[in-house]
Each structure stands twice: as C-alpha cells, then as structure tokens.
Amino acid sequence: MKKKKTETHAALVSDPSNALEAATQAAYKAFANYQAPHGLLDVCTACCMDAELEREMRHLPLPQLTEKHFYQYNDSAKSQVQPADEIKYLAPRLLELLAEGARLHHSTELYLDRLGRCEPGSFSATEQAALQGFALAYFAQGLEQWPAASDSLFQGDNAFTILLMWAYARVPLEPLLQHWLDSDSDASTLNFVDACYWDYVWNANQMGNAFAADQAEYKRTMEEWLNRPATKARWAEKLLCLVDTGPTSSWLPAGAVDHQRYPLPERISAVFDAMTA
C-alpha cells in the first residue's frame, strides 16, 4: 500500500495535468449510468435561473453544458437535501468545467455545495473513489501554480479555500493534506505560506474563512492537522529549505502589489514564527 501511495504522489507531481484529465474521465465513467431528469431541476425558474437554460441542462448532451448553465444552477434557490440522481448525472460535467477554470458560483467555496447536500450514503464506493481521485488530482495541480492568479486553477483563491470547497462536497481532505505535506516543490510550499498568512489565526487556532463557520468537520480536520507536531516539523523543514535556497523564477515578481505591501520574506517569517512558537 505504501508503494502505491508513493507512485500516486509521484505521478501527480511529475504530470499533474495528465492526472487531472485522467481523473475527469474516471468521473465520467463512474457516473455514466445516470440519465438527465425528465422534470424540472431543483432550481427556481421564477427569479433565480433562466427557464431556457434549465431546459437545456436536461436536453443538451452533457458535454455541451457551459459555465453559464452551472453558475445559474448553483446560484439558484435549492432544496436543503439535493436529489442524488440529478446531481450524479451532472457531476462529471461540473468537475470537467472546474478543471477548465470555469466560474461556477459567486463564491468558490460553494462551487460543489450541491454534492454535499445529497443524503448520506447516496454515492457508491466507486463514485466516492472517483470524486476523491478528482479532488486529489485537482488539488495537486493547483498547488504547483504560484502565485494563484485569477487565471490559475485555484482562480486566485488560496489553498485553504479550495480545501473548504471540497469539504462542502463532503470529500475527505486527508489524502489532499498528505499529498501537500509530501510535496517538495517551492510552489506548494509558497501556497502553504499564503494560505496560512491570509486564512488561519495561529494564536486562536482558528480558520479565518467566514464560509467555514458552520463546517465543523472542516475546522476540526484543518486545525488538528496544522497543530500536529509532525506537520509543524515538516513545514518548518520546508520553509527553512525555501529560505536557504533563495528566490527562483517561480516566486512572486517584485512588482506585484502583494509583494510591495506584504513582502514575501515577511510572510514566510510570520508563518514560520507562528508555527514554531
């Protein structure tokens, strides 16, 4: 099992784009047996979603559905508990658009909210594995892009926001966190620096994102992971290595606004000091 995990990590690091494409195709395969709903989707066409777009989501071939369809679908009023068959029919295209960098809601954290609203036990083991595999491939590729510009896979959000998005989908975060900890790339470490600097209050042991307020499992997982001695030791090692190596071409350009207001060395030192205090 250890060898398989190591091989998976190596594949994600060496060719993350191919891993994400493979994960997308695996999602299509896992959810291939679901059909488009015959009746109205779980949306409000009175004021939230254009009626024609709703009709197209049931009648167009799944690969033809666009960012516009899913943005309105996700932003619409919806039932607290989602219809699993509807969600599972749409899931592969939703994930594919996510991999393409589509904007799927006004808030990144809620891109996959409908997935997490299905009844517990709605997803088979095969379907859960497809979601987990996609989440890992997506997260691994995004970690290798730094800074997280608006046109990057994380769309300008920090990595903790992306983890919260997957927490809303009820996808376990531990495999993603372990991959992050195992990664040796400068980009993944710098993504950790920015996520901690902007979105975690060390002295209060508290996640800073307002969307995490009612996500108790997310907060528990993240806060426990961040304060685990082995986690702190590993990140301290990687941060020291980053500082010793010095800037490379992948680091934030000196002219960027964030670098002027909050210099990167200051951010690295602040995270290191807070984590090792």
Score class of each variant (00 low, 15 high):
E144N: 10
G142F: 02
E127V: 09
H179F: 15
V171Q: 07
L112F: 14
L115T: 06
T161G: 11
L112H: 07
G133K: 05
P172E: 09
Q132E: 15
L90S: 01
G142Q: 02
L163D: 00
L177Y: 02
G121Y: 06
Y89H: 12
A148L: 07
Q80C: 09
A84L: 06
H179K: 11
L163K: 01
H179Y: 15
Q178T: 14
E144R: 15
C118H: 10
E109M: 10
E109H: 12
R117I: 05
G156W: 02
L94I: 04
L153M: 04
W180C: 01
K88A: 09
E119W: 08
E174Q: 15
F139K: 04
L153G: 06
H69Y: 01
F139Y: 15
G142E: 00
D113S: 11
S183P: 06
S122L: 10
D75V: 10
G142S: 03
K68E: 13
H179P: 10
H105V: 04
Q128D: 14
E86Y: 11
Q155Y: 05
H106S: 11
R114Q: 12
D85Q: 14
G142T: 00
Q128E: 15
F139L: 07
G121A: 12
S152H: 06
P172R: 10
E100Y: 03
R103A: 12
A148Y: 05
S79Q: 14
F154P: 04
G116A: 06
E96N: 11
Q155C: 08
E174T: 14
G121M: 09
L94K: 00
Q145I: 05
S76I: 00
A167I: 07
L98E: 00
R117K: 15
R114I: 06
Q72W: 13
L177T: 01
